[in-house]
C-alpha cells in the first residue's frame, strides 16, 4: 500500500472508532463547553468588553486543552489491546500511519473549533465580520493542521512510555505555544478585536502554515523510528 492509501485506511478506522465510541460528543465537547463557560465566569465584567477582547485566546486555550484529551484517546485505542504492535508488524508505511492519525485528529479538531467559535459568539458576544471570514477559515485550517501534526507526533512519542497521561501535556503544551500565539493574533485580526485590523493577521497565518509544514515533514520522517522505540 502506498502512503496515501495507508493514511486513508488509518484515518477511516480512527473516525469509525470515534463514531462508535462518541468520545468527542460525550466527553470532549462538554469539557470544552464547560471550559468556555468557566472562562466567562472568571473574566466576566459589566460590559463584556474584556471577554470580547480575550475571546480569540480563550477559543484556542479551550482547543489546546481538548487536544490533550483527543491525542490521549487517539493513542489509547492503539495501546489498549496491543494494536500498536500489530501496526508495527503490519509492515505498512509509518508515514502513512502518521498522516492518517493526524487527519482523523484534524477532522475532530475542526468540528470542535467550529463549535467553540459558535460558543464565543453566543457567550462572549464576539462578532464575526464578513471581511474576516477568509482569514478566520484559513487560520482555523492551518492551526488545526499544526496541532494535529504535533499532537500525533508527541502522542506517538509518549505512547510507549509509562506515565504518558501526565507526560503528554508537559511535552506538548510548550511546543504548541507558537500556534496559540499565532492563531490568537490571526483570529483577533479576523474578528477585529480591539485595534486589530485584517492585514495584521496574514503574517501570523504565515507562521501557522510554516509550523504545520515543518511538523508535517518531521512527523512523516520520524514516526517510523518513534513507533519502533
Amino acid at each position: 500500500m502506498n502512503t496515501w492509501n495507508v493514511a486513508k485506511l488509518v484515518a477511516a478506522k480512527d473516525l469509525r472508532i470515534e463514531a462508535r465510541s462518541r468520545v468527542i460528543t460525550n466527553q470532549v465537547l462538554p469539557f470544552a463547553a464547560i471550559a468556555m463557560v468557566m472562562f466567562a465566569f472568571a473574566l466576566d465584567n459589566e460590559n463584556d468588553a474584556l471577554l470580547v477582547q480575550v475571546a480569540p485566546g480563550l477559543i484556542w486555550l479551550a482547543t489546546l486543552f481538548s487536544l490533550l484529551i483527543l491525542v490521549q484517546r487517539s493513542f489509547a485505542i492503539e495501546t489498549a489491546d496491543g494494536a500498536i504492535d500489530a501496526l508495527r508488524v503490519a509492515g505498512i508505511d509509518p508515514g502513512g500511519i502518521f498522516l492518517g492519525k493526524a487527519a482523523a485528529l484534524a477532522a475532530q479538531l475542526v468540528a470542535l473549533e467550529t463549535i467553540l467559535i459558535g460558543a464565543a459568539v453566543l457567550l462572549y458576544h464576539t462578532e464575526i465580520r464578513l471581511g474576516g471570514v477568509v482569514l478566520l477559515v484559513t487560520t482555523v485550517l492551518a492551526a488545526t493542521c499544526g496541532l494535529a501534526f504535533v499532537g500525533t507526533l508527541y502522542g506517538g512519542l509518549a505512547a510507549g512510555i509509562k506515565g504518558r497521561e501526565t507526560l503528554l501535556p508537559l511535552l506538548l503544551l510548550p511546543v504548541v505555544a507558537p500556534v496559540l500565539i499565532g492563531a490568537t493574533r490571526a483570529l483577533e485580526a479576523a474578528f477585529g478585536t480591539g485595534k486589530a485590523v485584517l492585514a495584521d493577521g496574514w503574517p501570523w497565518l504565515g507562521l501557522l502554515i510554516t509550523f504545520a509544514a515543518a511538523f508535517g515533514v518531521v512527523g512523516v520522517l520520524a514516526f517510523g523510528p518513534l513507533l519502533d522505540e
Binding site: 472508532i17 462508535r20 485505542i77 489491546d81 496491543g82 494494536a83 504492535d85 508488524v89
Partner: peptide, 14 residues
C-alpha cells in the same frame, strides 16, 4: 509475518 502476542491487537469499538 503475523504476530499474535499476549494481546490480540484488535480495536474493541469495531
Amino acid at each position: 509475518v503475523g504476530l499474535l502476542g499476549h494481546t490480540n491487537g484488535l480495536y474493541p469499538e469495531l
